[in-house]
Structure formats: structure tokens, C-alpha cells
Amino acid sequence: MWLFWQFRRLCTKVNTMHDMVLEVVNRLLLPFIQLFGMYILFHGHLSPGGGFSGGAVIGASLILYSLTFRFARVKHRLDHDTSVFFEAAGALIYVAIGFVGLFFGYNFLTNRGVFPLGVPGQLWSSGMILIITLALGAKVSGTILSLFQELLEGGSDEHGNP
């Protein structure tokens, strides 16, 4: 019980805390973190990284955002339903991309012959991989944020499905 109350106290502290340094530094830092996450996402098919890594960076930045700025204040911008929606939307885009191949008479998730492949090494290449990476990024960042929110809300809703 003790740890739980400590945890709740921490949460309320987060809600009431006004730390100038933290806020200013984060205001400066957050755009760059998110830009870096976006970079990893968009270059997933060209360099190491991709949906999970980029999504994790963006998700971590969102957690930082809701920790630094009072959680109650940002709640209307980053509420639980939004993160769950992003989670589902990412997965559904993935499945939809898979079905595109099926509609053109190929197998599920076919890339070659369905999507324009482009020139290897350029940003707009590799057909569906880029779209899938972005969808995965949305899913992973949504999942990480919603896991954080679940734990913050005291684990009242405990399905942490992957």
C-alpha cells in the first residue's frame, strides 16, 4: 500500500509541480527529440532503425511531455482514448496495406508488383515498407504512451496487449 500511495503522491506532485528549468529545457528539447524520432521512422528502410525504434523515441518524448508539463493540463491533448486510437489505427493501416496485395491478385502483404519500388537508397523507395514503418511508428508510440497512462491511472485497466 505504501508504494502505491507514494506513486499517487508522485503523480499529484507531477500535477502540481512548477519547475521552470524543466519546462524551459523541455520546450527546447522536445521538438528535436520528436524530429529525431521522425527521422528514424522515415529512414527505416534506408538505415538501421524503423517502426519500433522511431515509435519508441516519439512515445518516450510524449511521456516526457506529460511528465514535465502538468499531467492534468495536457490530459485533454493526450488523453487515453487518443493513444488507444493511434494504437488501433497503426495496426489497421498495416492490415489494410496487406490487403492491397490481396486485391491485386497477389499474396497477403505483397510489395513487388503492387507498389512502385523506386530507386534503392532514395527516400521515396521500397514501396509499402515506408508506409508500414509509419503505421508501426504510430502504433508503437501510441502503445508506449497508453502503457504509461495505464500505469499512471493505477492499473485499473490492466490489459497491456502488445
Binding site: 488507444v84 486510437f85 494504437e87 488501433a88 495496426a91 489497421l92 492490415v95 496487406g98 490481396l102 486485391f103 491478385g105 499474396n107 497477403f108 496487449n161
Partner: peptide
């Protein structure tokens, strides 16, 4: 278009898709 050869993957995909849509409802 949807021949029977696609049935195995569809079984998994239909259930997974439903699993992602249901929590939104």
C-alpha cells in the same frame, strides 16, 4: 480474387483486425 489459398492467413488476420477494432467500440 479471394481464392481458397488465402484462407489460412485470412483466419489469423480477421481475428487480429477484430481484436484491434473491438476496443474502440
Amino acid at each position: 480474387m479471394f481464392s481458397l489459398t488465402h484462407a489460412p492467413i485470412l483466419m489469423v488476420v480477421i481475428l487480429l483486425t477484430a481484436a484491434f477494432i473491438v476496443p474502440l467500440l
